[in-house]
């Protein structure tokens, strides 16, 4: 059982939840995720660690309310308990000094991207960040990303804030202006698909972090399998980050929908 320390509303339906987990806070690295479960009948949900405070012994998770399980998580108040929390899981992001890094965040993807942006900045890279969302109410972690980026470009689909357009438009603006050595794209699968297609045109190595369906998160179930470069990989033990140019995004998109019909049958609370 892990105690919830704070629950902060970041944007419409998106919450930052800080949970006591001293051991995970100490051992986690950028790119890692946890699995958590709320309630005895709860589902095991994988969530990327957005931030950690070693001294306070806490980790921060960013959660968007989309279904019954996430609704339960975002309703947790300070003092409430998370039934089960395990981690850190997944391979660490390989952070090194590469030169200029282009970070592309789509919606909720800003949360897993934050520790990676921070890591690359601290490793001495020039970091250019594009933060994109459907509209201004869905933009999150703008200040935090801004603090570790040399430049931060805001994009919204409807133009309600920053420039009007999708994340790839913002990315190309940077690429056309200066040499980019590495791109990292994190967001919905469809956004990463287009981001990877765009960077491929310019031959820029690209990392994507996948948020697949998982049960145990430790390699046991294989629900998270994804085809990368023609080979089946397990997102939980081989990922969650893969070469964006080698991921079979169409298969991934299909697999993400595997339990949709079933999800609809869940009791509505």
């Amino acid at each position: 059982m892990n105690k919830v320390v704070s629950n902060r509303l970041l944007a419409n339906n998106i919450h930052a939840i800080e949970v006591e987990a001293p051991l995970i806070a100490r051992s986690r690295k950028p790119g890692n995720f946890v699995i958590l479960r709320v309630g005895d009948k709860g589902e095991r949900i994988p969530l990327t660690i957005a931030d950690a405070d070693v001294e306070k012994g806490t980790i921060t998770l960013v959660v968007q309310k989309v279904g019954a399980s996430s609704a339960k998580i975002v309703s947790l108040q300070p003092g409430d308990m998370v039934t089960d929390l395990v981690g850190p899981l997944g391979q660490n992001t390989h952070i090194s000094k590469v030169g200029t890094v282009l970070a592309l965040a789509g919606g909720l993807g800003a949360a897993p991207l934050l520790p990676i942006v921070k890591g690359f900045k601290e490793a001495g890279n020039r970091v250019l960040t594009v933060l994109a969302a459907r509209n201004k109410d869905l933009l999150i972690l703008r200040e935090e990303l801004g603090a570790y980026s040399d430049e931060l470009l805001i994009m919204t689909d409807d133009g309600s804030e920053g420039k009007k357009g999708v994340v790839t438009v913002g990315g190309e603006e940077f690429i056309n202006r200066e040499k980019v050595d590495l791109a990292i794209a994190i967001g919905p699968a469809i956004m990463m698909k287009f981001a990877a297609q765009m960077t491929k045109k310019y031959d820029i190595p690209t990392i994507c972090s996948l948020n697949t369906i998982m049960v145990d998160g430790t390699g046991m179930c294989g629900a998270c399998r994804v085809t990368v470069g023609g080979e089946t990989k397990f997102t939980c033990v081989d990922g969650p980050e893969f070469d964006g140019h080698a991921i079979d995004f169409d298969e991934l998109l299909n697999r993400l929908g595997a339990y949709k019909e079933e999800e609809c049958k869940l009791p509505v609370k």
Partner: peptide, 26 residues
């Protein structure tokens, strides 16, 4: 022995094909 083996045959990553570990764990 955590990792389920698959057979590496075409279509194995279609929805509705899963490991016994996944099925039984669920």
């Amino acid at each position: 022995a955590g990792l389920p083996r698959f057979m590496n045959i075409p279509g194995e990553n279609l929805n509705g094909v899963m490991s016994s570990n996944e099925y039984l764990t669920r």
